[in-house]
Design a protein around this nucleic acid. Structure first.
Length: 1054
RNA sequence: GGGCGAUUAGCUCAGUGGGAGAGCACUACAUUGACAUUGUAGGGGUCACUGGUUCAAUCCCAGUAUCGCCCA
């Protein structure tokens, strides 16, 4: 006997362990007959090692798990590759914060000591999210979980073996890209985060609109020059001129004037034409700088003249470069004014905001502050640090993204061209069945790519397709405007850059002769040796310096610090020039970009790489298309080559899912206090705990009472334990291909109820001995009711398969829900009751077997969505199953099981029952009151006798008989043009019945009118397809018959 | 400023060139037989607005309004 209901708390952990222990999460062994089509793979978007599960993960992983389980059941070799991202900045931040609480600071530690702290933290507290992902039911192959940074120095050998390639791969990628000219080192303006004191990429900068000021500053013209400045009225008309000995520039950052190199005006701006070529004297610093003409100056904005600070503004940088200006950096790493001789001492060391106030005060004092304007300004902030980002001139490593982007754009064009928008059916071509490729690792030869068999699709031809396809535009747009990607970070936690520096020989005209002395070597613009290892770098250096000064031979010393390297010149033996390894690390996304192949073992040529690259689909949110998807495309195409040397895309499809928002449509965020923890929805939570969690550790604690109040109002009773299945099903059912999902807790409860419904139907089946029958062949069923439910099962199975294949998860979930609840539970189960409780015999046996078979199919079809409850039932309703549900065969039958006659017959039964119920309910006839059903006509429909046992309980029909005329005091209904009467003397309000009939007639009448308008239109009859015209005629006939019968009924009432 | 998207029942959202849908909420009725985490029935919508294309528009096109997101 089944328990009363499913207990997720008890079952989830037990079942998950059973799956994992069974080896079901590992890809099945390769068969000799396997083609690329028989493999299905997904790489997980690696969560940050610091991360904890949020709703975005829940959606993302639910979708992946649906795809994975579906394809696994279809018999494919399935690999869901898990892993984590080391998340450079985020992790370093977490650990530094933790150390600070213990009065320990990174600055006072060696790099090695600090990294040991981070690794220790990772072992202890990192990676919690992998446990949380298990709670969702994610069926990843955890045994191959990868970490972008590789193994910890203290890891055991097994772990080291698993992670070995991760670090090697990144180094190899860096070196190869450098050698291919795709990576270079350059002094450029970059986004500088003064808090973390590192460069960050454009993508890590968030521009926000904040309250700010525009200060209009007067820059005096040099040498007593003056000009006539036009004075305008409110409408912009010039009303006169005034003589000015200054130009006005407006800025939101006055402190940068300390580093100004000029003032720009538009070349066509007549007002300033005479001033171009003249100079202004910068106040405070008393420097002369030129007035130049440049298109960048917008005559419409402000005074039309702009100050130019090339070292601290991206636009000014370009202007300065065009004008050949020298760059003057005025800020240090922390955003403080540098102690430069050209800057008055009182500014030295001031934080930029303080310097700003002082500059403004000085201008004001000197009468040079023309105006202070309050307005909203756009300001860049670091997405992690939250501080204002300073453009800074520094030496950094860059990827020439523009070059790589071309191939990546072309690959997506190919992907979409191979799959033109589908026909009106809206069905996508099933991707993973139209590709058939084999790939080998970088060092191996490639097999020719086999063209897929055509099923209408042309095959992917090594392209990637976005789903929904509108994301292609976003991707294209960004790729076409891509900027050099700054990949170096001034952090410690990450892949240290594999480059070594030696002194440069550029200062001498190097001819191969030994320079006279090391003194003239240039330490500021070092020679760069990019290599996989120090030994390799040394070799390269030896070749380079080989015939230089015989007194200074490089023999393999690596400088421990840049100070030592610069200041000491020779190593401790006083003999040798040292090489210095670049202390910086790579942007985390550089290693994430290798994820689709590094996780499969690259740069080794592994079996997994062969079998599972390219991956079938990438499932992710649109917020990381640029960060991640684009980079994987670029790096995948660069490193993974086919036998012709063509780059191979990392995935066939990219499915972009929605963002999960709260019920009000707001982005979930800790600071707003509207986050929902997936685990709370799975396990349940009290309102008190929920409030506590939402108000703990707020950046702005003042908000706590407000958040607490809103939380208690929204969820006064907290959450019940809905279980992982309900959460998954809700996410799937809301995963329409739109932009976002408002998560509804009511719906989660609704889908929990759905699970209970399924459970109770299974329980009913068990009580009635409806166990699955070994070898039952559904095509042999004889009873129409069984043929019908088998038909509906087949139709549903086809529908669900089609929907999952085309990433229409909500449609798939809906189809499963409707079939289970409405078709199976509400109709079949009730219709089967008389048979199951009737006399033993062939019909009862067939019905039991059918019931058992259909329930099995339901469990299979629901399994990808609700893995736990289905697996539990699978085991509990039948003993000695051949396999667990997770590896059971997916239903693949189809039309051959659909019996149109049986479907028509049962639809008639349902209409009859529904109509009887409806007229009775309309007249408020209590269900307890049974009544005969009279067929008003000449012959009794034999089907009425057959379904009498069902009509009795379901439609409260006492018995069925033929009547020549409608008796008085009877309700009437029409099914298929046949009139039925239900005599209920004494229970019917005849006036109400007349009104009811009149209303029904009116309804049908208005439909007829609508159709008549159409059919009366000659153009419609002439031009519309015949099918449509016929359909309308048929519909009209149907309504007409109904009206006639209803009218007769109404007339009969007198 | 450029781009993308949304606007359908009270709420949250599907949907389609030819008969307006679901879940929740609501109303009425029911209840010892799978299930109250229930059953049956019902009410409720000019498919944002204005034009256009078409025999036919909620759907395609153009514009307007409102809201949201991304980029500058």
């Amino acid at each position: 006997m089944l328990d009363k209901s499913f207990d997720p708390k008890e079952a989830e952990a037990r079942i998950y362990k059973m799956w994992e222990d069974s080896g079901a999460f590992k890809p099945r062994a390769e068969k000799p007959t396997d083609t690329k089509d028989d493999n299905f793979s997904i790489v997980i978007p690696p969560p940050n090692v610091t991360g904890s599960l949020h709703m975005g993960h829940a959606l993302n992983n639910t979708i992946m798990d649906i795809l994975i389980r579906f394809n696994r059941m279809k018999g494919k070799a399935v690999l869901w590759q898990p892993g984590m991202d080391h998340a450079g900045i985020a992790t370093q931040m977490v650990v530094e914060r933790k150390l600070a609480a213990e009065q320990k600071y990174r600055k006072n530690m060696s790099r090695e000591d600090f990294l040991n702290h981070v690794w220790a933290w990772k072992e202890e507290s990192g990676g919690m999210i992998e446990q949380q992902l298990r709670r969702l039911g994610s069926s990843c192959d955890w045994s191959r979980s990868k970490f972008t940074l590789g193994a910890s120095p203290n890891a055991d050998d097994a772990e080291k073996a698993i992670q070995q390639n991760m670090g090697d791969g990144v180094t190899k990628a860096f070196v190869e890209m450098y050698e291919a000219g795709l990576i270079y080192r350059d002094k450029r303006l970059v986004n500088w985060d003064p808090h973390f004191q590192t460069a960050i990429s454009d993508l890590e900068v968030e521009t926000k609109t904040v309250d700010g000021h525009y200060w209009h500053l007067r820059y005096p013209l040099a040498d007593g020059v003056t000009y006539e400045h036009p004075i305008t009225d409110e409408e912009g008309k010039v009303t006169g001129h005034e003589t000015r000995g200054y130009v006005v520039v407006a800025t939101s950052r006055p402190e940068t004037m300390l580093g100004d190199t000029g003032v720009a005006v538009h070349p066509d701006d007549e007002r300033y034409a005479a001033l171009v070529g003249k100079e202004v004297v910068l106040p405070i610093v008393n420097r002369r700088v030129p007035i130049i003409a440049d298109d960048y100056a917008d005559p419409e904005k402000g005074s039309g003249a702009v100050k130019i600070t090339p070292a601290h503004d991206f636009n000014d940088y370009e202007v300065g470069k065009r004008a050949g200006h020298e760059l003057i950096s005025i800020l240090d790493d922390r955003g403080h004014i540098l102690p430069l001789v050209i800057i008055p001492e009182e500014f030295h060391g001031l934080f930029s905001v303080k310097a700003r106030k002082l500059v403004v005060a000085k201008f004001d004092e000197a009468g040079l502050l023309a105006e202070t304007e309050k307005l909203k300004i756009e300001q860049p902030f670091g997405d992690r640090s939250g501080v204002v980002i300073e453009p800074m001139l520094t030496d950094q490593w860059f990827v020439d993204a523009e070059k790589m982007a071309k191939d990546a754009v072309a690959a997506v064009n190919r992907g979409h061209a191979a799959h033109p928008t589908s026909s009106s059916s809206g069905a996508y071509v099933v991707s993973n069945e139209t590709t058939n490729r084999r790939i080998h690792g970088a060092d191996a030869g490639m097999n020719p790519r086999v063209k897929p068999e055509g099923d209408g699709g042309e095959g992917r031809e090594n392209g990637t397709r976005f789903i929904p396809e509108n994301w292609k535009k976003t991707y294209d747009h960004w790729m076409e405007n891509i900027q050099p990607w700054c990949i170096s970070r001034q952090l410690w936690w990450g892949h240290q850059i594999s480059a070594w520096y030696g002194p440069s020989l550029t200062k001498v005209n190097y001819t191969g002769e030994a320079p006279a002395s090391l003194e003239i070597w240039d330490w500021d613009n070092p020679e760069i040796f990019v290599a996989n290892t120090f030994e390799e770098a040394l070799e390269k250096a030896s070749v380079f310096y080989g015939n230089v000064d015989a007194n200074a031979v490089l023999i393999g010393k690596e400088a421990e610090s840049s100070e030592k390297w610069r200041n000491q010149t020779f190593d401790d033996d006083g003999q040798n020039v040292m090489l210095l390894r670049d202390p910086d690390v790579l942007d985390t996304w550089f290693s994430s970009g290798l994820w689709p192949f590094s996780t499969l073992g690259w740069p080794e040529n592994t079996e997994e790489l062969e079998r599972f690259y390219p991956t079938s689909v990438l499932v992710t949110g649109f917020d990381i298309i640029f960060f991640w998807v684009a980079r994987m495309m670029m790096q995948g195409l660069h490193f993974m080559k086919d036998e012709n040397g063509e780059g191979v895309v990392p995935f066939d499809d990219v499915y972009i899912h929605a963002l999960v928002l709260d019920e009000a449509g707001k982005k979930m965020s800790k600071s707003i206090g509207n986050t929902l923890d997936p685990l709370d929805l799975i396990d349940g939570v009290t309102s008190d705990v929920l409030v506590e969690k939402r108000t703990r550790g707020l950046k702005n604690p003042d908000k706590a009472p407000q958040i607490a109040k809103a939380t208690r109002k929204a969820y006064p009773d907290g959450f019940e334990p809905y279980g992982a299945d309900a959460l998954r099903f809700t996410l799937a059912s809301q995963a329409g291909q739109g932009r976002n999902i408002r998560l509804s807790v009511d719906r989660i409860a609704g889908y929990r109820n759905f699970g209970t419904k399924l459970w109770s139907a299974a329980s009913f089946g068990q009580m009635n001995e409806c166990s699955p029958v070994e070898g039952f062949d559904p095509s042999t069923a004889t009873l129409p009711v069984n043929k019908w439910i088998i038909s509906e099962t087949a139709k549903t199975a086809m529908e669900i398969s089609r929907c999952i294949d085309t990433y229409r998860f909500n449609d798939a979930a809906d189809a499963a829900y409707k079939f289970t609840w409405d078709t199976f539970c509400a109709w079949y189960l009730e219709l089967s009751k008389p048979l199951l409780s009737g006399a033993d015999g062939a019909e009862k046996d067939e019905t039991r077997a059918t019931f058992g078979w259909v329930l099995d199919q339901i469990l299979k079809l629901l399994h990808p969505f609700m893995p736990f409850i289905t697996e539990d039932l699978w085991a509990k309703i039948a003993e000695g199953r051949k396999s667990n549900l997770i590896t059971a065969d997916w239903p693949t039958y189809g039309d051959e099981l659909v019996n149109a006659d049986a479907v028509a017959e049962l639809e008639w039964v349902q209409t009859l029952i529904t109509n009887i119920r409806s007229v009775r309910a309309d007249m408020n006839i209590p269900p307890s009151k049974k009544a005969p059903l009279l067929l008003c006509g000449d012959t009794l429909d034999p089907r009425l006798a057959i379904y009498a046992p069902q009509l009795s309980p379901m439609a409260r029909v006492e018995h069925v008989e033929l009547a020549s005329a409608v008796p008085d005091n009877a309700l009437q209904t029409v099914v298929d043009g046949v009139q039925y009467a239900i005599p209920l003397a004494g229970l019917i309000d005849m006036d109400a019945e007349r009104k009811r009939l009149a209303k029904e007639i009116e309804k049908a009448q208005s439909e007829i009118e609508k159709i008549d308008r159409k059919l009366g239109n000659e153009a419609f009859v002439a031009k519309a397809p015949e099918k449509v015209v016929t359909l309308q005629k048929e519909r009209r006939a149907g309504y007409a018959a109904e009206v006639e019968t209803l009218q007769a009924a109404l007339d009969g009432l007198g």
